[in-house]
Design a protein around this nucleic acid. Structure first.
Lengths: 230, 230
DNA sequence: CCTCATATTATGTCTAGACATAATGACGCA
DNA sequence: TGCGTCATTATGTCTAGACATAATATGAGG
């Protein structure tokens, strides 16, 4: 256990146990350095990591303080559907419904785009319905790919890096046509996932996925603390 | 612009622009130090921040490499409903339906628990239906609070620190009773949010919130990069 | 050709000291 | 009382050097 790590974990422990409440003033770097018998730079590094993880707040001259309750947030993982289904041990299949140029100004993509619609199947059962726009300005190669064979999400994930992503999650009632494609009744509640992906501020792709409410749920987790903490 | 920040931002920029592809080997710390005319420790700090943010991967002896495409994840913010509604400029009101001891073994909470059910209203319209279990072992004060007046979520957020949270998001069709309370038709798709909150590994509270699909959606965003980058 | 020991090398961490920066509080003046 | 100034102080950042650690490359021996 290195000193920096020890300082970091001990302070994190005191905060999480409630011994040091939000707003509590942490000893100064000098005091901690004396206490742990190490250089001030070492303490500073430990405090820097705690601040980066949001557990404490540092203010010049004032000192370091236990941060107020963290924002109520969670990290949601949205893997590629092919991977997700494979991880469940089911056969995955992509069934394209249509591949065509998007009408100009269709959705959130400026400039020319490709519009791909299709169905993700798990064990030959409909799993999700997808309609995707791919920017041809950002992804010129997309025109050459056979999206009748390969799911566009899988191909994009492997070929195009992204820097920002935004999801909007809703509960919707499917249209008659959507319900039929998903093999669901019209009264079945569906989960709609709208995902827009950017690269350096420019939209790469936009996808709307519709899931049967009885077969899919999203999980989001968050664990307060410092990355790599033991 | 401090040197460490400059190094960090320039490398991050090259990665995000695609100039340095995943797997690309970044110059050694010594080379970078010579290039920027600074100490190796300064370069090391910059690389450390890039590694912490997941943009690069560092391996002893081998060097530092541009990380492979990040996991497809997003950060979801789930604020207190009272705050969320107030932020929209609407009146918030909590209407308790029942407050009673939970039957032992009810749901995910071991030991005695309080069960609170109620309705969140925005501008006097039903907004969300909630049923919450609060562990009396972890939150002994909960027995003394008048949850007929104050929403349990608001009170807990202000009084009890948490360390872990897990959400499960589903689309469901409401029961007849739920639909009536939400002022919705029985065919209305609803978004169900199941949230369990832990403190040091022990469940503090578990809540199930039901939202009208036509009035609520969740947003999750993720931006690759370094916190505080300009 | 394969295997094991050794040397090399890049990162990981730390130290002691220095200067910069910004917020606070005390002091003096109006 | 109110305001501006200045010294103090804690963090922010950096340097130059040191040793630790782990993974790779190299070379010797089988």
């Amino acid at each position: 256990m290195t000193p920096a790590r020890r300082i970091r974990d001990e302070i994190a422990g005191r905060i999480r146990s409630g011994a040091w409440r939000p707003g509590h003033r942490i000893p100064t770097e000098q005091e901690l350095a004396a206490q742990y018998g190490c250089a001030r730079a070492t303490v500073s590094k430990a405090l820097g990591e705690l601040a980066a993880s949001g557990l404490i707040e540092r203010r010049r001259k004032a000192g370091s303080f236990v941060a107020h309750p963290p924002v109520h947030s969670a990290v949601m993982t949205v893997p590629d559907l092919a991977e997700l289904i494979a991880a469940r041990g089911e056969d995955y299949r992509w069934q394209a419904l249509s591949v065509e140029p998007a009408s100009q100004g269709d959705g959130a993509i400026p400039g020319p785009a490709l519009c791909v619609a299709g169905l993700h199947l798990a064990a030959n059962e409909p799993f999700a319905l997808e309609r995707r726009l791919i920017s041809l300005a950002e992804v010129p190669d997309a025109g050459d790919v056979d999206f009748g064979r390969e799911a566009p999400g899988t191909w994009l994930l492997a070929h195009i890096p992204w820097t920002e992503v935004r999801h909007v999650i809703r509960a919707v009632s499917p249209t008659r046509r959507e319900a039929a494609l998903l093999g669901a009744g019209g009264a079945m509640a569906c989960l709609e996932l709208d995902r827009t992906t950017w690269r350096s501020g420019r939209v790469v792709t936009h996808v709307r996925q519709l899931f049967r409410g009885d077969r899919f749920d999203l999980v989001a987790e968050f664990k307060a603390g410092v990355p790599g903490e033991g």
